[in-house]
Amino acid sequence: MQENTHTMNITVNGVNYEKEVPVRKLLSDFLREDLGLTGTHVGCEHGVCGACTLFVNGEAIRSCLMFAIQADGADVTTIEGLERNGELHPMQESFSECHGLQCGFCTPGMMMAAIDFLKHNPNPTEQEVKEGMSGNICRCTGYKGIVDSVLKAAPLISKLETKSKVF
């Protein structure tokens, strides 16, 4: 049984790759194994935990629910792509300052979801953050630090010049 592969072209964090990929390979596995981008974590592989969340063409989606070859031609941003020119994204700074992480396993997906959430709601209330972030499970923080981080990042992100915004 020969593994069935397709050739694909994908841009990840600004770098273009042409790769031959098994058809059945999940996007999350492809990024981790074929591109060595292990910042994207896998917590459930059935769409519930949110750990694998990353941006495909500007939308934060579950990379465990997408086959890599479906991202042929896509522009992908993973956690490794948040830092631009040596400058951390305000979400990264806020997570550290507000103790938004403990073990850090949910953190990459959590930050991606948070950045995406703020795109739709740049100035949220605490309750809105709690509801808007409910697609990502964290088992360590009790969510308090996460909610604080998102609230703290919101005005900082609004202030960012458009060109330095990730999306």
């Binding site: 939308e59 579950r62 409910s134």
Partner: peptide
């Protein structure tokens, strides 16, 4: 339905 990440797709 679910969460934003689910609704995008």
């Amino acid at each position: 339905i679910g969460h934003l990440a689910i609704r995008y797709r």
